[in-house]
Design a protein around this nucleic acid. Structure first.
Lengths: 202, 202, 202, 202
DNA sequence: CATGAATGAGTTTTCATTCAT
DNA sequence: TATGAATGAAAACTCATTCAT
């Protein structure tokens, strides 16, 4: 296609409504948390998002594609939050605690996104590629672990082990809070940080 | 005809076939892990279990009931395994490490059961009742935490926090192993136990 | 499965209603002739056949399977009709004229079946296997051609050529009749037979 | 913006692009032969033709209109081919054989067009009007039949019967060739002409 | 003239479940 | 108890077509 024709096409193009994409994502998250992945149909999502079911297929290839894109999008927001105001110059302990606090703040204030991601991450519908894409967003964190190990601040263990102790207990705590089985309390969060630190520190 | 049928019934079909129930459970677990909860239908389960779909309804009220019963059944096996050879007289640390080892042994050797339970525990299909029933099976563990706290062996924090640090990182590790993202190694498992201990010990 | 169990199963089995299969076939034929292959949906067929759409899937794997089975079934009826009262002892010309008459009688009195078969035989939905299965039913005819050639009654040409001249013009004539573009007249049919004979006779 | 658009329009888009029309036709023919009328959607045609689906509606009223116009267009090409170098002065037999040769040459070298026309001509989507328009293009041929009858070269039978024997067996032969069930051979084609002639000659 | 976005109405197919036997 | 047949409801997805640009 000539350049001039391409220009022509752009001029005659109607633009996709990014807001619609957002609405679809939100509808999906809410329904899946309320009724479960298996009970959430495209038509229900469409109805809640106030678009036609066929419109979803303008934005996504199919249901699986939509869910995977949603997952990656949430992981992106999550990583942005975790690394918000990330300062290379502070001590490793501070950096680590800052990140953990950012993380718990984010998942506490993004209940639906977090619970969806948890539900989806245990499902075979999550593509390996999306999983990796999501994980790669936390790359800077892994650098922090390496630095901590080299400075003998962290235990000399596999980085992935450090990671598991950093985030999993906190995630579980928040899940229990959301499930109404535990109260949300600052003291608990502080204890959580302390225990996490004890687990990973050299 | 009716007479002959009665004869048949008396001779061959008097009791529910426990083996059939087991086959249904196994088929469900395998399919759900391979294709996901949403992609696993009753008829597929039936086909894999080598029974008629309607037979499943002889053993369970409906799909939800079946999945919940399956979940509780797995949790029961799991708790039995965790408390296998449980000895009240040994030290708290030994008891704790013994339980954790039993747990990781069990989930490593019951991949399908474990992954199903994880997938299902994040789904709203899991009834609160089943969740509680599953949790209650680990009652003795909570006694151990209390004892540990009173003996100042464990940190003076909420028991649920102790629980989170005890099992969640290990579960995550095993998931990574099953996902092929980490190698299974005894050294890692040992490090895991050490870190867990550091997290919860006073 | 033990023999005794198999017996048991049979006793508890509800039998498929062959009449239903027939009703599905008839509904399909009529709709396809009226609206075309592409405009005939499974649900329309089901409605016309007075069964639930899902019932069709008890009898057939999918739409394609149903259409192919329908095609083969029609070809079977057709061949039965063509070879009705087939007598090996009469002259080749008589046998040949008898078969052709049986054929034109059949397609004239089975308009819907014939027109469906014609429409479907030009569609890529017709599997090669079904095509061959349909063709194989006319095996005795090909023997007749061979015999005719060896007795120097027919031209010494490829058997398939003899076949084309035997049936295609007649089929076209009947199509024109059904399309209302020609009147159905015995004289025309007689002329058709004469011309066919002139084409293939030595 | 509007001004710029007008400029574009004047410079590049004043006329319907005949090439685009052709591309749409070709895409339709190929897809329909490969997948069937029912499996060929406007969007698939558009994608293959490298135009937007909505562009098709610039050239045609709707799908049915497009298919009918395509059919008539093919019939036009076919008739042009059949009457190519048609010479009124030669003998009837020569003229007839010439036309038949032109016809078989055309359909053999225009597989997709021919097979589409066959598929479509058996479908109720073909409008009576298009059918007649297509048929009318072969008008000169019917004059030839009449002339042949009046000169006692052809049998004194309904002209349509002469027509059926002239083209149908050849069409069937070519279909068998395209279906890979018969080899294409000049000898067969010659035999075909001879048999045709025997069928219709007085 | 050309097109991407959008959609209501439809498609094929599968689902969980019931029921007569 | 066990099951094949049957189905209403719903699933995911596609369709032909329209429209603003």
């Amino acid at each position: 296609m000539t350049l001039i024709k391409r220009l022509f096409n752009i001029m005659y193009m109607r633009h996709k409504d990014e807001n619609k994409r957002e609405r679809i994502f939100n509808a999906a998250i809410q329904l899946i948390n309320e009724y479960g992945l298996s009970e959430t149909s495209m038509s229900k999502i469409a109805k809640k998002a106030n678009v036609s079911a066929s419109t979803i297929y303008v934005y996504f290839e199919n249901k699986e594609d939509m869910l995977n894109k949603l997952y990656v999008s949430i992981k992106k927001d999550m990583s942005l939050a975790v690394f918000h105001n990330y300062d290379e110059s502070i001590t490793i302990q501070s950096a680590f605690e800052h990140a953990l606090k950012n993380f718990s703040d984010f998942i506490l204030s993004h209940k639906d996104e977090f619970l969806f991601a948890e539900q989806f991450s245990n499902s075979p519908l999550l593509h390996k590629l999306s999983l990796m894409e999501g994980a790669s967003l936390f790359e800077p964190l892994f650098k922090l672990y390496e630095k901590g190990k080299s400075e003998r601040v962290f235990k000399q263990v596999d980085t992935s082990l450090l990671h598991m102790f950093t985030f999993n207990p906190t995630m579980q705590y928040v899940k229990e809070v959301f499930g109404g089985r535990i109260e949300l309390e600052q003291d608990r969060l502080d204890e959580l940080v302390q225990m996490t630190w004890d687990a990973i520190k050299a």
